[in-house]
Design a protein around this nucleic acid. Structure first.
Lengths: 196, 196
DNA sequence: GCGGTAACTTACCACCGGTAACCTGTAGGG
DNA sequence: CCCTACAGGTTACCGGTGGTAAGTTACCGC
């Protein structure tokens, strides 16, 4: 059997192993030796490829980041208008997380990963802000940024909710976000209060 | 000078020192010896009081959690109606973070603290869901939970935005959230699109 | 003052992230 | 077909840190 591989091959192997081990044992509780053992090599190999434990984690997150933008922007492309775009993008986000159960947000433990995750949020925030800007060209950029951040934060929490309570469907989560983001609670509160 | 203190006194001293050191150096980069030195004792003292490094962090977060509920619920009490309640509560949240610059969300590094922070979110989510339930008694509980989570996530992201860009005021952040949560984007997108 | 207990220190261990030095399989030229 | 150069890989080690067992000392009640 092969015992030596090219850089690219080993890097892919290590990345896969790292995602698996970090996911099942958590970042802090995972030793580099454990990852190395899973790959079938020794520790220094990991260091020649990724520099440090945080570097390895960073590579995992960076990979996930590209895949996320791919998934959401593709969904938004297929939409018929602003509301549909927000809805489809949101739904695609939840579906993305469904496809990679657990292995996505475990990363939030390390401080260097926190920064990388922040980059992912920035990526999604800019993307959403540009969608909103197209829907309402009169809004000033800062306000668009604010709205986009609200949506990103909302999605993150809804996703976490679904993780701990899988009975909440991706469609329901999307609907709850649309309730607030598009329609607003004002109308509902008014409904139950006084006639309109 | 006094060299020995009662349990309660030492615990308070250690908690203060831990908050300070964790805040300025980050959780992962802080050694227990560093905290102990700041207090003026040796490491095992910390362990007799808090059991482990994570236990110490947990105590810090638990303390902050109680203070947060105190601040937001007090603000909501003074409101005149549902919308004002949401607005005042949100504003109080941002002001709370202003008062403890940086020292609040640094905690999100450890996995055990992630759970504790999750408890804080649960606390605020339940609180907000109950407010929303009062505003719209016809909504079903799961939907209320969904809305509350949207708001909690939105606040968290807006707070983070303000931390990295202090020119965004607490009032602006609150306004952006109210734009979506209360009024909704539909009206605005419609404004720029066709007449209503 | 004088025990006795709670507070505290000393001295240590095991584990883990990281590295220097050495070894070996294998592609490619003669 | 062999042999050499180097990429790929291993062994053996270090320093720092979380955590602890055993011993020491200040303080309170009598």
């Amino acid at each position: 059997m092969r015992t030596r591989f090219t850089r690219a091959e080993r890097e892919a192997q290590i990345l896969d192993a790292a995602v698996a081990v970090f996911t099942e044992r958590g970042y802090a509780n995972t030793s580099m030796d454990a990852v190395a053992e899973r790959v079938g090599v020794t520790k220094p190999v990991l260091y020649t490829h990724f520099g440090s434990k945080e570097g390895l984690l960073l590579a995992c997150v960076t990979q996930a980041r590209a895949q996320l933008l791919e998934a959401t922007s593709q969904a938004a492309m297929e939409a018929s208008g602003p509301e549909d775009m927000l809805r489809r993008g949101t739904l695609a986000f939840f579906r993305f997380l469904d496809d990679r159960r657990g292995s996505a947000l475990v990363y939030a433990e390390s401080s260097v990963t926190a920064e990388a995750i922040e980059d992912i949020r920035a990526q999604q925030t800019d993307f959403i802000a540009s969608l909103l800007g197209a829907a309402d060209p009169t809004a000033d950029p800062q306000r668009l940024q604010g709205w986009a951040r609200v949506i990103v934060g909302a999605c993150e929490r809804l996703a976490h909710w679904r993780k701990q309570d899988p009975s909440v469907t991706a469609e329901q989560a999307t609907e709850y976000l649309m309730d607030l983001a598009w329609q607003g609670l004002g109308a509902r509160a008014g409904d139950s209060g006084r006639a309109r």
